[in-house]
Design a protein around this nucleic acid. Sequence first.
DNA 1: AGATTCTTTTTACAAATGTTAAATAATGCT
DNA 2: AGCATTATTTAACATTTGTAAAAAGAATCT
Lengths: 187, 187
Amino acid sequence: MNNFIEFCHSISRLDDPASADLLKKIRRQTFEKGEYLLKNGQVCSRFYFVEHGLLKTSFKKEDKEFIMKFFTEGSICTQLESYITQGASTYDIIALEASTVAYLTYSDFESLCQLHHSIERLYRKFVSMAAINMMKRISEMLEENATVRYNNFIREQNDLLQRVSLGDLANYLGITQVSLSRIRARK
Amino acid sequence: MNNFIEFCHSISRLDDPASADLLKKIRRQTFEKGEYLLKNGQVCSRFYFVEHGLLKTSFKKEDKEFIMKFFTEGSICTQLESYITQGASTYDIIALEASTVAYLTYSDFESLCQLHHSIERLYRKFVSMAAINMMKRISEMLEENATVRYNNFIREQNDLLQRVSLGDLANYLGITQVSLSRIRARK
DNA sequence: AGATTCTTTTTACAAATGTTAAATAATGCT
DNA sequence: AGCATTATTTAACATTTGTAAAAAGAATCT
């Protein structure tokens, strides 16, 4: 499922006028590998959907990078805090592969929500999905050590393992690359 | 702010009919210290708001307990995943102090969302707030070690420190009580 | 191919956290 | 008050993870 409007329909029923209005507002853009969709300090003014490619949201602290999330084809990709509050982001969004994204601007999406109850509901469900995913991540970080987290990752996102550098994977798991390398060695 | 309906108004504008309908559906209940609002395996069928008291959501794994969140006066208290999916919860919700909560049942809240666009928007904002909070928690777990997380906790929730056992605090921080005790000792 | 750069692994040592058990302190009960 | 229970701290040792530096391996470029 890498078509935004189809994805929306699969998440929540949209009446025809809503669907038509939504379709009119969807924009599209492509990014090269390494390009920034959002830079630390900017406001995230777009609600992205990944059609092709792979991206990450991350932030840096004292030369160390931490990755909040990878975004693959068929997933919503936004820096939620900045998007919701329309405040400066502390995160980047960076293309890890050449990527094409569909997006709605913040003001378009907000207008659509005002105009169409069914789009407001769609948005509600998007955020609900994001919240559930984050809760799972928190649980996993609480209860499992890095070895288990790594094994969970290769079990649940084996495809990603092929596409993400081990450095980035370590930054996502919250350990150093050296530590990840160690974990991989003893198996 | 420990009145549910006022809290709702403070989050998102509600038109009068919506506000009136919402008010009609709000129920109230009190719990003794130690009582369960939700047990692992049950479906979370209520959307709680804490008027007085203190609660936690937690889960157990191999005798170890992990705490997802504390809920104080004036905050939403729900096991979001179970509530949203209406599936069995893997978490408990437990009163840490005698507590009184206001709540909406799932079916009432869903009906209200169908009926009133402004309540759908309110719900959207509730979930957005929850998502932002969880994202902050994830960042903190990624970038800070237990000592810093403990110091952040006493800085940002010093009131809670007085009300929560150190065991529970350790379970929230994701470390053992022994380790927390050590952190507290060296200061 | 050779040179360069980036990624990953390895090594050695330091620091943080976990585990188990015991000791101490605090709380609640009768 | 005295007893029992629970919460917290301390100690000793094991394991995990971090740090820094070097080595090995892969990818890129000309």
